[in-house]
Design a protein around this nucleic acid. Structure first.
Length: 495
RNA sequence: CGCGGGGUGGAGCAGUCUGGUCAGCUCGCGUGGCUCAUAACCACGAGGUCGUAGGUUCAAAUCCUACCCCCGCAACCA
């Protein structure tokens, strides 16, 4: 049985700071990974950084560093971010790794039959050192907005990858779900895009316009452009080509990508793989963007949300909770501090946290903390698993929460506090009470199991609390109330 | 007529393929209950012409037609 699974995340360009979109990538992949591990699978989970390109070279020059020196520090915040959101990644790849660079050149050579040289013509700004599309030129009335200089019509030599060689194969793979694009509407979008075939893509730049990158083999005047360099990380990180262990993990089971980079992953990347004679990834999970208060996140608007700030204030599990339940996995989602805090206080605090608290507290109060024989929860895991399999994490949470609600209702119905009182007069009450409480503990353990992929720390605390048979002396609330962005209902109303 | 997604009580959504059992869920709001618990939990309730206008049908949120509005994509924009 194929027990080895592989999940990848897009590697961000290090020119810039990690943002919440990167965090979402890491989080989604991590949830899936933890779920699979919980089910006994072996999972490789890759993350990494894209470190070549002009922008990095320019940044480096500004700081008086070599590009490599710059990259050596610029990738660290991304690594820190992945760790901050609790990503249990197994591999971190940098495109400046020696092995990666060598592998990229090897890949180029393998693709030679599909590579040709051609002349690219377009509008160039000498200030930006890059080409602009006709549309952009038109939009800016023919001169570069950054440099106030007219665009020049230039031509340069580029190597091209003949993606068109693979048009039919790619389309067929998408249509048949051999390479499944999730969600379905992204698949439609893509099929529409490639219905007339896929276009060839330029995969190199002259050294003069791209100084920082992997040289094209046998042509020192050309440097490999981002596509082959960055996309191939998904296999080079596994050791491709020399370490045959890669075969145990490739093809990837899931590749997590943002909606903005779907087409690179669904067109160029498959073309590269097909050219190499490698199988295509089984699934591309396309997630949406996160808005803040209904607006796009942008630095100029000043509505940038720092995942670190959320985590430092509310805790890691609270962050993971909101972004996996209230940001739909496959569509755009909306973040506001008010929504976040309300979900934290009401759902995590009241529903789950309080349930754990009241159960533990009753066991302590009525049975000196001794739980007795725990009845395993019997909730039907089918719908939960189905939701997990199709990356409907919000639906998985709905399942978990319906269990939380049921348990609260159950406790309300059987009223353990009354049974406890009845013990003086009723000889059967003692046993009945023990049964009720151990049933509750069992249900909570099952809830904890379902929370493992999402809220690992919370799940662990719940396990520790109930599975040893004895409730520890000190009970600390799982999610203490925090009112920084919403009104505190406990506050004395000002008259 | 570029392509795709969507418009359901104050907010966020499900239901639409396979018409009736649909007007549902969560949050918020109101009333009551309870006291084990993090002012929590439980019950009940108010609130919607299911974007608009036509049509098909015994019956439409669900099918058909037209229109309005929002959003995404439209290939080198990491």
């Amino acid at each position: 049985m194929g027990k080895n699974l592989y999940i990848t995340t897009a590697i961000p360009y290090v020119n810039g700071t990690p943002h919440i979109g990167n965090a979402l990538d890491y989080l989604l992949a991590d949830i899936w990974t933890r779920y699979q591990i919980q089910n006994g699978k072996t999972v490789r989970f890759q993350i990494g950084t894209d470190e070549h390109g002009n922008k990095n070279a320019m940044k480096a020059a500004e700081k008086g560093l070599t590009p490599q020196q710059y990259a050596d520090q610029a990738y660290l915040p991304f690594k820190a971010m992945a760790e901050k959101v609790g990503s249990s990644y197994t591999d971190f790849i940098r495109t400046t790794d020696m092995h990666h660079k060598a592998a990229v050149q090897y890949i180029w050579q393998q693709l030679k039959d599909h590579i040709y040289k051609d002349t690219y013509e377009g509008w160039y700004c000498t200030g930006c050192e890059q080409f602009y599309t006709d549309k952009e030129v038109e939009l800016n009335n023919g001169s570069c907005p950054n440099h106030q200089k007219p665009f020049e019509h230039l031509s340069e030599e580029n190597y091209y990858l003949r993606c068109s060689d693979f048009s039919d194969e790619i389309r067929q793979a998408v249509e048949s779900n051999k390479m499944q694009i999730v969600p379905e509407f992204r698949k439609k979008e893509l099929l529409e895009m490639i219905k007339d075939g896929v276009k060839d893509v330029s995969i190199s730049r002259p050294r003069k316009s791209l100084s920082w990158g992997v040289p094209v083999p046998d042509d020192p005047e050309q440097v490999i452009y981002v596509w082959i360099d960055a996309l191939s990380n998904y296999i080079t990180v596994l050791g491709y080509p020399d370490n045959v262990e890669y075969k145990e993990f490739w093809p990837a089971d899931v590749q997590v990508v943002g909606k903005d980079i779907l087409r690179f992953h669904a067109i160029i990347w498959p073309a590269i793989l097909l050219g190499l004679g490698l199988p295509l990834p089984k699934k591309l999970l396309v997630h949406g963007f996160i808005n803040v208060g209904g607006a796009k996140i942008s630095k100029s608007v000043g509505n940038v949300v720092d995942p670190g700030e959320i985590i430092d204030t509310y805790g890691l599990d609270a962050f993971r909770y909101f972004f996996s339940r209230h940001i739909p996995t496959q569509e755009d989602g909306d973040f506001t501090w008010e929504k976040f805090e309300s979900a934290y206080n009401n759902e995590l605090g009241n529903d789950l946290g309080n349930l754990v608290q009241r159960t533990a507290s009753m066991i302590k109060r009525y049975q000196a903390g001794v739980i007795g024989e725990i009845t395993t929860g019997e909730h039907d895991m089918g719908p939960y698993r189905a939701a997990m399999e199709k990356f409907a994490f919000d639906q998985a949470f709905d399942e978990i929460w319906s269990m939380v609600r049921s348990l609260n209702q159950y406790i309300e119905q059987v009223k353990p506090w009354e049974i406890a009182k009845a013990r003086d007069t009723d000889t059967e009450a003692e046993g009945h009470l023990a049964e009720v409480l151990s049933h509750s503990a069992g249900a909570l353990l099952q809830i904890a199991d379902m929370l493992v992929p999402f809220l690992p720390a919370t799940a662990k605390k719940m396990h520790e609390l109930f599975e040893n048979g004895v409730i520890p002396d000190e009970l600390t609330p799982l999610f203490p109330k925090i009112y920084k962005h919403t009104d505190d209902p406990r506050a004395t109303p000002s008259v």
